[in-house]
Simulated assay, not measured.
Amino acid sequence: MLSVSPDNICRLIQLSREFHAQEGVTIPDPSGDWARQMLASHADDASLQEFNTIIADLEPDQQQEVVALLWLGRGDYTRAEWQDAIAQAADRWNPQTAEYLIAHPLLADHLEKGLELFGHRCNE
């Protein structure tokens, strides 16, 4: 069961799609601190700002759920392994959750798939 509102997840999906659809958003070579560099160059982006705000407003356990949902939708875990995904997300949690999430170019697709495994769909 999800403690994060499916509506919040759907909004994150929408914002992620808006952000990643922009020209000029590229995910550089993963060596170095690429996520921070990429996000710093888009700091004034309204979609990114709202995305960051939604994540920051979530409790850490809810942020961990969003990360686990990404992993679930990406195929790293099955629905039956949900508690394992949550435990792994809790072990890896840090205050840069928003940066970690938005740095995944297919975030929206993965979150959408993960949400569907819980029986929810976004109305777009």
Score class of each variant (00 low, 15 high):
39 L>H: 00
71 W>G: 05
32 G>H: 12
37 Q>T: 04
94 N>E: 06
89 A>H: 02
87 A>L: 10
98 A>G: 14
92 R>Q: 15
105 P>Q: 09
107 L>V: 08
49 Q>S: 00
63 Q>P: 06
77 Y>P: 07
39 L>E: 06
99 E>Y: 09
46 A>S: 04
46 A>K: 02
89 A>I: 13
103 A>E: 01
77 Y>Q: 08
86 I>Q: 08
82 W>M: 01
51 F>H: 09
56 A>Y: 11
100 Y>E: 02
93 W>N: 08
52 N>V: 12
90 A>C: 11
65 E>T: 07
103 A>T: 07
108 A>F: 01
55 I>K: 11
53 T>G: 12
65 E>S: 06
92 R>C: 13
65 E>D: 09
80 A>G: 04
104 H>F: 12
56 A>M: 13
91 D>W: 11
63 Q>Y: 07
71 W>A: 05
71 W>L: 11
45 D>R: 01
83 Q>P: 00
80 A>D: 12
82 W>S: 01
81 E>G: 03
100 Y>N: 05
50 E>N: 02
60 P>N: 11
72 L>Y: 07
35 A>N: 00
103 A>K: 10
33 D>L: 06
70 L>R: 11
42 H>F: 13
49 Q>K: 02
58 L>W: 02
32 G>E: 10
107 L>S: 10
77 Y>F: 11
102 I>T: 03
63 Q>G: 05
108 A>R: 12
86 I>H: 04
59 E>T: 15
71 W>S: 09
54 I>T: 15
53 T>M: 14
38 M>Q: 02
36 R>I: 04
46 A>D: 04
71 W>T: 00
97 T>I: 15
104 H>A: 14
54 I>S: 15
100 Y>G: 03
94 N>L: 08
57 D>E: 13
69 L>H: 03
103 A>F: 04
72 L>I: 06
73 G>Y: 02
68 A>R: 14
44 D>T: 13
108 A>P: 06
47 S>V: 05
74 R>A: 10
93 W>M: 09
97 T>M: 13
75 G>T: 05
105 P>W: 01
57 D>C: 13
98 A>T: 14
69 L>A: 14
101 L>Y: 08
91 D>P: 05
103 A>S: 15
103 A>Q: 05
34 W>I: 03
58 L>R: 01
71 W>C: 08
83 Q>K: 14
76 D>W: 06
73 G>P: 10
67 V>N: 10
108 A>W: 06
62 Q>F: 07
93 W>L: 12
89 A>W: 01
50 E>F: 01
83 Q>V: 04
77 Y>E: 00
32 G>I: 15
40 A>M: 03
43 A>N: 02
105 P>T: 04
62 Q>Y: 06
64 Q>L: 07
91 D>F: 11
86 I>E: 01
36 R>M: 08
51 F>A: 11
95 P>I: 14
67 V>E: 07
67 V>S: 12
80 A>R: 11
33 D>P: 08
63 Q>W: 03
82 W>L: 00
106 L>M: 05
107 L>W: 06
62 Q>W: 01
81 E>V: 06
35 A>M: 00
46 A>E: 10
103 A>V: 07
71 W>K: 10
88 Q>W: 11
66 V>Y: 01
50 E>H: 09
36 R>P: 00
42 H>E: 06
47 S>Q: 02
50 E>Q: 12
76 D>R: 03
105 P>M: 08
56 A>S: 15
83 Q>Y: 01
98 A>R: 04
90 A>M: 15
50 E>W: 03
44 D>A: 10
85 A>Q: 05
79 R>Y: 02
